[in-house]
Design a protein around this nucleic acid. Structure first.
Length: 899
DNA sequence: GTCAAGCCTG
DNA sequence: CAGGCTTGAC
């Protein structure tokens, strides 16, 4: 860990510096990568020592805004009960789940858990990050920066100067918790150190502000991570470096140690502890400290470095703390279940058996929760309530458990009637009905509980039925292996197939003997998860809410339902044309009139040939085009597949009526090399954006191994940066003929098109690359291609013009460009390497004009002007001619090259 | 602020 | 050929 820490620290500092100078792109991506990693780590509940801060941060970062808000409310209630931390939390509405949970647990259990000695470190980590977020970034939109600007003020009750996680010494802190020495002390220590740290943080922040007034010190939110960590260290360092108080701190720390050694065995022992008892002396010390600390500002880097070891220590404690907390939670959960089971035993059995299946499927959502647990079937009802899977810790809160248990019981009573009606209302699946009847006769072997059992059974059946319907619909769109995306939780809960559901129902009632045997984690973790999952497969508002961040970050491109629907609906309401203009038309130099160069200003050139076709109607070929094999096509992005209503498009099944051209077959070998580069760049971007979740991106398009290099496209990545609209734009009805990426053949085609047009408009590109799903990135890439073509073209022109001048040519008229000209050969080599395309004469003419323009300009000495070429560009851009209709065909290469 | 062109670089 | 960057138009 030490190494990792130091390195990350260094990198963080480096990044910070870079951020400060405004180089934010790389920084952003890198930081994001890290943040994302931590996100998944935290989701997986791995308590690596170095993740504590990150976990908190991540939680705050994404879920923090919305979901945490809700939870905070709930938590606040709990806290009120505990009558302890309310004031602490209030200033930071987005308090991290972990820290709150810790506090809650401690408060609820009376701080009986001795394993929480380290909680001070943990919670301080969380709240510190909160404080950091709230304070450090003035440019960020935080509620009340004032809270943080002033070094000490908003800090709730004065706190002791406990320095969490610091090595031993003797103690003086446990004075406030005599009866519950250890646990309460730890609790208080937690809180106190939290506040203390916050005070320090505020001071540090204040100083930072004073030092650098740069408002954009932290250009992007991802920076929180480093920032908070860094400052965390700084604050810690400050406290440490204050020698005057070392005595106090050491006392406190020793107390910590003492607690740790004694407590662990007392899990769940004493329930009634209250927080907030702070000795006056400690208050005094704290205040004293506050006054002095601001003077200790040193170089941050020094502080950071010197603080490494203590951080490690803290982390160790954090880890221990977390483990203990887990233990405690398990016990609480078991307790809860004992209570709950006694009341709802029968339902429990039924519900759980149903959940087992779901749990199994849920396990596919690796990133949602490592625990696939069963949860009471009734919890499905809670899924609409904005619960979030990766915040499952909050679900583990004992208070919540109890509350929810009551709620469940209440709802249970209602369920009996409701479900009956629901089932009756649905005649969609007769098999289900049969099964239900069976179940009624068999499993629900009658008595008062039988009603509930029946209700559960019915509910499960209903779920199965709906799931089946959804699946059948979805399967129509999804390629077999892509049908299920592991990333978004949508699919998870719906049984993949009737068979599975029937299995589940058949095995429903019995499987799980009551709970105690199960680890609470498994029971409740899934409960939390289940809340995010949609039992009946229908979209719910909180469908993706479990990870709001997914909306913007590349690793998981999960458009929110609204996004998806918006895009989809707009598409559906629009004209189903692959050429749909989904974006603003780029400014393009040429062909403003859509005509082909009638306004040729160069007298030496004949007007370009008239267009062979009206440029603006969709090509009839668009429906049957494409460069890539059918399997490559995907009607719409996977995230959309979870939604049943997308079925209208039915069965493209793999692109029937979409015969891959001969070119497609042999393309994979020769041209695949060309794509290597693109692939590489794509991967680079992906790595930067999404860390280790490359595969999911590929899923969206297709797996490269399966479909060849064409499946990869830079544009894909680019679009992932937040162009959800583009994702949504992938039209379901497009007949599976549109691909998202540009292939080597597209490049080849573009080169050939350059013989006709040097300045194609984006409209034109869309027309002629109708087999490509155009989005901003694709358009940019195509434009860039032509830009590069032009670049080469003009370079050659200038080169040959100068060469001619050097050779003594005096008049531009002496220069001609024929097919045997060196200039032409160079150009042809570049744009038509295989020379399998007959370059139009018009191009020769244009090349000749260009060459002469350059020649004249150079001779006239215009090249002294840095922008002397622009005049030439202006001339040349008017010489574009219409691109033959054949180029509109996706298979034009075959037609052109094999003629 | 966005977009595209153009230039430079790798 | 693509990425970064600047510039200019809108």
């Amino acid at each position: 860990m030490p190494d990792h820490d130091s390195t990350t620290l260094l990198t963080r500092q480096t990044k910070r510096r870079r951020v400060d100078i405004g180089v934010k792109r790389t920084v952003g991506s890198v930081i994001f990568t890290r943040a994302r990693e931590t996100l998944f780590d935290s989701m997986n509940q791995s308590h690596g020592p170095d993740q504590d801060g990150d976990c908190s941060l991540v939680g705050h970062g994404h879920g923090g805004t919305t979901s945490d808000g809700e939870k905070s409310n709930v938590l606040r209630k709990l806290l009120k009960r505990a009558n302890s931390y309310e004031d602490t939390i209030m200033p930071f509405p987005g308090a991290t789940i972990i820290s709150q949970l810790l506090k809650n647990n401690i408060g609820k259990n009376g701080g009986s858990d001795s394993g929480f000695q380290g909680s001070g470190a943990l919670s301080s980590g969380g709240s510190e990050i909160q404080a950091e977020d709230a304070c450090s970034n003035s440019s960020r939109d935080q509620d009340s920066p004032s809270d943080c600007l002033s070094p000490g003020p908003p800090l709730p009750p004065p706190s002791s100067s406990s320095s969490f996680g610091r090595p031993p010494p003797p103690s003086s802190l446990n004075s406030h918790a005599p009866s519950q020495p250890l646990c309460l002390s730890s609790f208080d220590l937690d809180r106190l150190s939290d506040e203390h740290l916050r005070a320090k943080r505020a001071r540090v922040e204040n100083i930072i502000r004073g030092m650098s007034h740069s408002p954009h010190v932290r250009p992007n939110g991802s920076d929180h991570n480093q920032e908070s960590n860094r400052e965390n260290e700084n604050s810690s360092n400050n406290s440490n470096s204050s020698n005057d108080h070392r005595g106090d701190s050491s006392h406190n720390t020793s107390n910590h140690n003492h607690i740790r050694s004694d407590c662990p065995s007392s899990l769940l022992s004493s329930p009634g502890s209250r927080a907030g008892v702070v000795g006056i002396g400690e208050v005094y010390r704290e205040n004293k400290r506050k006054q002095r600390l601001p003077q200790q500002q040193h170089s941050f880097t020094q502080l950071v470095c010197s603080r490494q070891e203590q951080r490690q220590e803290e982390r160790r404690q954090l880890k221990l703390q977390l483990e203990d907390m887990q233990k405690q939670l398990r016990q609480l959960q078991e307790k809860f279940y004992q209570i709950y089971d006694s009341e709802t035993e029968e339902e429990e059995e039924n519900g759980e058996s149903g959940e087992v299946d779901r749990g199994g499927e849920r396990e596919e959502d690796g990133n949602l929760s490592e625990d696939s647990i069963r949860s009471d079937g009734l919890e499905e009802r809670h899924r609409d309530r904005g619960r979030h899977s990766h915040d499952e810790l909050s679900e583990l809160d004992p208070g919540l458990f109890l509350d929810r248990a009551r709620a469940l019981l209440r709802e249970q009573a209602l369920l009996d009637g409701d479900i009956e009606e629901d089932v009756d209302g649905r005649d969609e699946e007769e098999r289900n009905g049969e099964r239900v009847m069976k179940r009624r006769g068999g499993a629900a072997g009658g008595r008062g509980g039988g009603g509930r059992q029946l209700a559960e059974t019915l509910k499960q059946e209903l779920n199965c039925a709906v799931s089946q319907v959804v699946d059948t619909v979805v399967k129509g769109f999804s390629s077999p292996k892509q049908a299920v995306s592991h990333h978004h939780g949508c699919h998870s809960n719906t049984p993949a197939a009737p068979s599975s559901s029937s299995n589940s129902s058949s095995s429903c009632p019995p499987p799980f003997g009551p709970l105690p045997s199960l680890t609470p984690d498994s029971r409740f973790g899934s409960g939390a998860l289940a809340l995010t999952l949609n039992g009946d497969g229908s979209p719910t508002p909180n469908y993706h809410s479990s990870n709001p961040r997914l909306h913007c970050f590349g690793d998981v491109i999960v458009p929110s339902p609204l996004d998806s629907f918006g895009g989809l609906s707009s598409r559906l309401s629009g004209v189903p044309t692959p050429n749909d203009q989904t974006e603003a038309l780029p400014l393009v130099v040429r062909k403003s009139g859509g005509g082909g160069g009638g306004e040729n200003i160069n007298p030496s050139l004949p007007p370009p040939p008239p267009p062979h076709h009206p440029s603006l109607h969709p090509s009839p070929l668009t429906a049957s085009l494409g460069f890539s094999p059918p399997s490559f096509r995907h009607p719409f992005p996977l995230p959309l597949m979870g939604y049943p209503f997308q079925s209208p498009l039915g069965s493209h099944g793999g692109g029937a009526g979409y015969p891959p051209g001969p070119k497609d077959h042999h393309r994979s070998s020769p041209d695949s090399m060309d794509m290597t580069r693109e692939t590489v760049s794509l991967r680079t971007k992906m790595a930067a954006l999404g860390g280790g979740h490359l595969s999911h991106h590929h899923h969206r398009q297709s797996s490269p191994s399966q479909h060849g290099p064409e499946g990869l496209s830079l544009s894909l990545i680019k679009s992932e940066c937040g162009d959800l609209q583009d994702i949504a734009d992938i039209s379901p009805y497009s007949g599976s003929t549109i691909q998202e990426g540009l292939s080597p053949n597209h490049l080849k085609k573009a080169k050939l098109m350059f013989f006709y047009t040097r300045y194609p408009s984006s409209n034109m590109l869309k027309m002629y690359f109708s087999d490509v799903k155009f989005n901003r990135c694709i358009t940019s890439q195509l434009i860039k291609w032509f830009s590069n073509f032009r670049e080469f073209y003009y370079i050659q022109m200038e080169k040959f013009a100068r060469q001619a001048i050097n050779e003594g040519v005096t008049a531009s008229e002496e220069m001609t460009v024929g097919r045997d000209a060196e200039l032409f050969r160079a150009l042809n080599m570049h744009y038509n390497k295989a020379n399998d395309f007959e370059v139009p004469d018009r191009f020769l003419e244009v090349a000749q004009v260009t060459l002469r323009e350059f020649f004249n300009a150079i001779v006239a000495g215009k090249d002294a002007d840095p922008s002397w070429k622009k005049a030439i560009y202006k001339v040349i851009c008017k010489l574009d001619s219409e691109v033959p209709e054949v180029f509109k065909s996706p298979n034009c290469l075959q037609e052109l090259l094999h003629d």
